[in-house]
Design a protein around this nucleic acid. Structure first.
Length: 730
DNA sequence: AGCACGCCGACT
DNA sequence: GTCGGCGTGCTC
């Protein structure tokens, strides 16, 4: 008999507490139950996250006071999902439960949540201390205030406030916090559009999977503008007709409000939206609309995955390759994979949509685990843009010195602008600071062990691999061609703008990057001006690649594709391909086919080659899977174990012993990259050190890691982070 | 977050 | 000595 409950309490203490379960509540308390428990002289709400027979707490346990509701607040399937997350991503169960809990319940300042409110009842100031006078003055202005606010403003503890209460100068009472009303915008309802042949086929195979009522995953591999959203909408309609609900995940909802609008316009009131920009009140309303079944479709970011929809018929992950689906705090889950898992638990169909499917998804399709559907035609019958790759090494040879603008690009810009069309110039600045490239031949030093770009360390003039720490002296000449100009690759947007203004003094040029992004209105102004044709050329970084539609742009120039190839990250190649595809999608309009000019020193790199085929309608999975070469050679699963600590020696010592234990318990197929002391990094006074593991299966690595985490005692100042399917290794 | 304890200064 | 304000630590 489990007579002890593991409870996470509403206050954010980042800790769970044991309580004994009284006999009469024994049958009512389940994992996921919401309970009232005595806590340091108060009574608080909490969630039961586990049941057990014994507690390690030395003092006597208190009893659970009462259970709220006749059924657990978190549905059973979601609890199952939380356990899977904790297990797969090596996270403590309480973290996993916190992640799946509706934030409405956890977060401060929401309705139902009571807080201490101070109200002034007397203006008497005689015989008060300095602090107390300040508090009374503060309250004179506002009459009532949360004590947490007072504490914040006066920088005092709550003691003086309580003293004032005793003196009857102010009143303290618990008060429910009012929430903001939810404002829903007026939308014109839409009807299903007629589908094209390919869309029909895709919809058919999705519907077939929905019919089966078993779990399945379908990749919807569709080029930009091929009408994936309409397929989603009609698949959802099908699911609704069978009285099943649907979950739609979108990356960074703030950037794609149009997508959300389309769902609302089609299905109206039954669509609930969950994302981080909602106020707590709005989130609360939306969550309860789902819980009480007045909303059966949920559109949202990562966390929408855990919406308490009873009968899920369909889960859609839009833009499944997007890195925002990876959670960066514990539990470090990947929403795409959790979506597939929820599909397994709910026995429903999961649709993964993308124009540039992630490597993992391609792999799963190839292995036969996911079905594949393709949309190769654009809905408006627009042609795919024409892609040209310019070899900058040859260009430099031709004119005798390295250059930022090839002849082709300059001519192309001139031609397009002369015809009153518009041009976007794309520049990736990421990785700019650390990687070095030969200006003549494009050579970049790679780590032979880890196959990622080495970073330049100025202090000791060395090239260092950030993963394993191996290093070499910085070569004064390019090891490949002997050119003495071996230095930082790429220029910033400002410099590009400067050169461009000299090249085309009569064209109107605008620049958009994180500097101009800082002021939100100026960002909007730049975009509006460009859209209205008041600007001819727009120079920008990543941010102009996503979701924006400029109908008159016919030429897109990628100035230096090499920068993103050489970001010291295993995903660099894949990312480059995805980025180039997105950028290419901005080119062309109904009557004029788009043109894309990609400047690079590496025309043979797989990412560039894959991008160069965009206009040839070659679209099979086998074509895509060759991109596997872009990643760490034969492995598709990565785990990073990071140790953080206050000083270098203790971190090094711990990682050494952890490494020695690891190689003992890991199966031999797992590749372990042994870190050298040079791989240690210091961020804000915290020393960080990583071990990387690679294999074709995650479980072969997680089991031994979990075993070690349970059995190896780390000093308490050492923090261990296990990141499964780590995306960013830079 | 907020309750209770114990320290310390002011006043009997 | 005693009362009461205030910071601090701890809460199953």
């Amino acid at each position: 008999m489990n007579s002890i409950a593991n409870v996470v309490i509403e206050v954010s203490l980042d800790k769970e507490f044991d309580y004994s379960i009284p006999k009469k509540l024994q049958s009512l308390i389940k994992i996921g139950s919401q309970v009232y428990v005595p806590f340091h002289g108060r009574e608080l709400r909490g969630f039961v996250v586990g049941l057990k027979k014994e507690s390690s707490y030395v003092k006597e346990l208190k009893q659970i006071k009462e259970v709220i509701g006749d059924r657990p607040f978190i549905p059973n399937n979601i609890i199952k999902l939380a356990y899977w997350i904790a297990d797969y991503y090596c996270a403590p169960i309480e973290n996993a439960v916190k992640a799946v809990l509706p934030s409405v319940i956890r977060k401060k300042g929401i309705a139902h949540r009571k807080k201490l409110l101070a109200t002034l009842v007397s203006h008497e100031k005689k015989g008060l201390s300095e602090i107390q006078k300040k508090i009374v003055d503060l309250l004179k202005k506002d009459q009532e205030m949360l004590i947490s606010e007072i504490k914040d403003k006066i920088k005092c503890s709550d003691s003086p406030i309580r003293t004032l209460q005793k003196k009857n100068i102010l009143k303290l009472e618990y008060k429910e916090i009012r929430r903001d009303p939810f404002i829903s915008s007026n939308l014109i309802p839409t009807k299903p559009f007629a589908l094209m042949e390919e869309q029909k086929n895709a919809l058919d195979s999705i519907c077939k999977q929905i019919d089966k009522k078993t779990s399945s995953a379908v990749l919807l591999n569709g080029v930009t503008g091929s009408g994936k959203t309409e397929v989603y909408l009609q698949a959802i309609k099908y699911s609704l007709q069978r009285s099943q609900g649907a979950i739609v995940l979108v990356p960074e909802i703030a950037l794609t409000p149009q997508t959300v609008q389309r769902f609302k316009a089609r299905f109206g009131e039954i669509v609930a939206v969950l994302h981080s920009n909602l106020s707590d009140g709005e989130r609360h309303d939306e969550w309860h609309r789902i819980h009480n079944k007045s909303a059966t479709i949920v559109v949202g970011a990562r966390s929408a995955l855990f919406a308490p929809i009873d009968n899920v018929g369909l889960i859609i992950v839009d833009e499944e390759h997007e890195p925002t689906y990876k959670q960066e705090e514990s539990p470090r889950y990947h929403a795409r994979d959790v979506a597939v898992m929820r599909g397994k638990i709910e026995n429903c169909c999961v649709v993964l949509g993308s124009a540039t499917p992630s490597l993992e998804t391609c792999f799963n399709v190839q292995e036969g685990r996911y079905y594949n559907t393709e949309l190769s035609q654009r809905v408006d019958n627009r042609k795919m843009p024409h892609i040209r790759i310019i070899n900058m090494a040859l260009e430099a040879e031709k004119i005798g010195h390295p250059t930022l603008f090839s002849r082709e690009l300059v001519d192309g810009i001139y031609e397009r602008i002369s015809k009153k069309e518009q041009v976007i110039l794309f520049l990736n600045r990421r990785g700019f600071s650390s990687s070095l490239m030969c200006e003549k031949c494009g050579y970049v030093s790679e780590c032979t062990e880890c196959s990622i770009t080495k970073s330049y360390h100025k202090s000791d003039n060395k090239l260092v691999c950030h993963i394993c720490g191996s290093e070499e002296d910085f070569p004064s000449r390019c090891p490949n061609c002997g050119n003495p100009n071996y230095k930082y690759g790429g220029s910033g947007t400002e410099k590009i703008e400067e050169i461009l203004e000299k090249l085309f003094p009569n064209f109107r040029i605008a620049r958009m990057d994180s500097d101009s992004m800082r002021r939100k209105d100026s960002y909007q102004k730049i975009l509006d001006a460009f859209r209205l044709g008041k600007t001819d050329i727009l120079i920008g970084t990543q941010m102009i690649a996503k979701g924006l539609d400029f109908p008159n742009v016919t030429l897109v120039g990628v100035l230096n594709a090499d920068i993103s190839i050489h970001v010291p990250d295993f995903r660099a190649g894949e990312r480059t391909y995805q980025l180039l595809t997105q950028v290419a999608g901005r080119a062309g309009r109904g009557d004029i086919p788009g043109e894309v000019i990609i400047q690079t020193y590496n025309p043979k790199h797989p990412a560039i080659k894959a991008a160069s085929k965009l206009d040839e309608d070659i679209y099979s999975i086998n074509d895509l899977i060759f991109r596997k070469k872009m990643m760490y050679p034969p492995y598709s699963h990565l785990i990073l174990v990071t140790l953080k600590g206050p000083n270098e020696s203790i971190v090094v010592k711990c990682i050494e012993s952890f490494y020695n234990e690891l190689v003992h318990v890991l199966p031999s197929s797992v590749k372990v990259v042994r870190p050298l002391p040079a791989a240690i990094t210091k961020v804000k006074g915290v020393y960080r050190y990583q071990i990387m593991l690679c294999d074709e299966q995650t479980v072969k690595m997680t089991k031994p890691i979990k075993y070690l985490l349970d059995n190896v005692r780390f000093p308490k100042e050492i923090k261990v982070i296990v990141d499964v399917d780590a995306l960013s290794l830079s």
